[in-house]
């Protein structure tokens, strides 16, 4: 039996008729065509499918679309504002924090809640904070730097890029 649900995704309201067993990540990717949210492990281990649900980071492969009825969702597509990269997106770009990029949307969505709760996290807090997100190519050092960069930028401080300078 189909259920009608209404969700606000990146500020826009959508109504859809869905099967109760439809996963939230499938609603986002296949019904709303927002493919920036990735499916990695499909077992709530890797964090690639992380989105914000009413401001809280959740793994959308382990929620049903019907559970999001009436709620507000932010995906990676909603991070860019007025054509400007979000400080986290800029931080990842500036610090070589991605290689294949598969984990990046989930990392950024998770980091956005981390910085919202704790605007100036220590390195240890960042590492614990992203402990539910797996990256299989860069290692985590540059991802941590990218989140530090975004935190500094959001606090209005000077930011240092680790981009190598060639003169």
């Amino acid at each position: 039996m189909l259920k009608q649900i209404t969700v606000t995704v990146n500020g826009a309201q959508h109504t859809a008729e869905v099967e109760p067993r439809l996963l939230l990540v499938h609603l986002i990717r296949e019904v709303l065509n927002l493919t920036g949210t990735h499916i990695g492990c499909d077992t709530s281990s890797c964090g690639a499918c992380t989105i914000l649900l009413d401001g809280k980071s959740v793994k959308s492969c382990t929620m049903l679309a019907v559970q999001a009825n009436g709620k507000s969702i932010t995906t990676i597509e909603g991070m860019i504002q007025d054509g400007q990269l979000h400080p986290l997106q800029e931080g990842f770009k500036e610090n070589h924090a991605l290689h294949c990029g598969f984990c990046t949307p989930g990392m950024i969505m998770r980091a956005s809640e981390l910085l919202a709760n704790n605007p100036n996290p220590t390195e240890e807090e960042i590492r614990w904070g992203i402990s539910g997100n797996l990256c299989r190519c860069t290692g985590y050092n540059n991802i941590v730097k990218a989140i530090e960069y975004a935190g500094a930028k959001m606090r209005g401080e000077e930011t240092a890029s680790t981009e190598p300078q060639f003169v």
Binding site: S44, G47, T50, K56, S57, V58, K59, T62, M63, R110, E113, L114, W128, G129, S131, G132, N133
Partner: peptide, 8 residues
């Protein structure tokens, strides 16, 4: 688990 799972 991890922070996202603890949110749920």
């Amino acid at each position: 688990a991890d922070p996202q799972v603890r949110n749920r």
